[in-house]
Simulated assay, not measured.
Amino acid sequence: MGESRRVYSTAEGDLRTPADRKPGRRTAPPTPGDGIVRVSRETSGRRGKTVTVVRGLPPRDVSEVASDLKRRCGSGGAAKDDVVEIQGDHRAKVAACLEAQGYRVKLAGG
């Protein structure tokens, strides 16, 4: 049986494919297109590890900004799906670096 088989739900009668119901598949929350870069701290889904997350950057700047922030914070990270992730809690340092580069920055979350 391949991935093309249909799965019928008796509750609502909707059609779903197995790919629609894979566990652990999450999408990032939508980013409002207001020109503000949001810097937050996340631990969920990362086995308790803290990660600084930057959302709202222009897509053309993501990889360059990620490289610069990783170097300035002295830690690893990744740039994927227009989101920059820096390992560790570096919200204040990341916000200061982004403001110095001319971005409007807000600290989001706790």
Rank of each mutant, 00 (worst) to 15 (best):
M1W: 11
G2Y: 09
G2D: 11
E3L: 04
E3G: 06
S4Q: 07
S4A: 11
R5H: 14
R6C: 08
R6F: 12
Y8D: 10
S9V: 08
S9G: 12
T10K: 15
T10H: 14
T10E: 14
A11I: 12
D14F: 11
D14S: 15
D14W: 14
D14H: 15
L15F: 11
L15P: 05
R16K: 13
T17F: 07
T17A: 05
P18M: 06
P18F: 09
P18D: 08
A19Y: 06
A19M: 12
D20A: 05
R21D: 01
R21W: 00
K22F: 07
K22A: 11
K22I: 06
K22W: 03
P23K: 15
G24E: 09
T27V: 14
A28M: 09
A28D: 14
P29M: 07
P30N: 06
T31Q: 11
T31I: 10
T31K: 04
P32V: 12
P32W: 00
P32M: 09
G33T: 10
G35Q: 08
G35I: 02
G35F: 01
I36H: 03
R38W: 02
V39N: 02
V39Q: 03
V39D: 01
S40R: 12
S40A: 12
R41V: 02
E42H: 02
T43A: 12
T43S: 13
G45K: 05
G45E: 08
G45T: 06
R46P: 00
R46Y: 06
R46H: 06
R46T: 08
R47V: 03
G48W: 09
K49P: 02
K49F: 07
K49Q: 12
V51I: 13
T52I: 01
T52S: 04
V54E: 03
R55D: 04
R55F: 01
G56K: 01
L57P: 00
L57V: 01
L57I: 00
P59Y: 03
P59C: 04
R60I: 02
R60A: 10
V62S: 05
S63L: 13
E64L: 08
E64V: 06
A66L: 11
D68W: 12
D68N: 08
D68I: 08
R71I: 11
R72L: 08
S75D: 06
S75Q: 10
G76E: 15
G76L: 13
G77N: 08
G77R: 10
A78W: 15
A78K: 14
A78C: 07
A78N: 09
A79E: 00
V83I: 07
V84S: 03
E85W: 09
E85Q: 11
E85N: 10
E85R: 11
I86Q: 05
Q87F: 03
Q87G: 00
Q87A: 02
Q87D: 05
D89V: 00
K93S: 06
A95Q: 09
A96C: 06
L98W: 14
E99G: 09
E99V: 07
A100F: 11
A100T: 15
Q101V: 04
Q101G: 03
Q101C: 04
Q101F: 08
G102T: 13
G102F: 13
Y103I: 04
Y103T: 03
V105C: 07
V105K: 09
K106H: 12
G109M: 04
G109K: 07
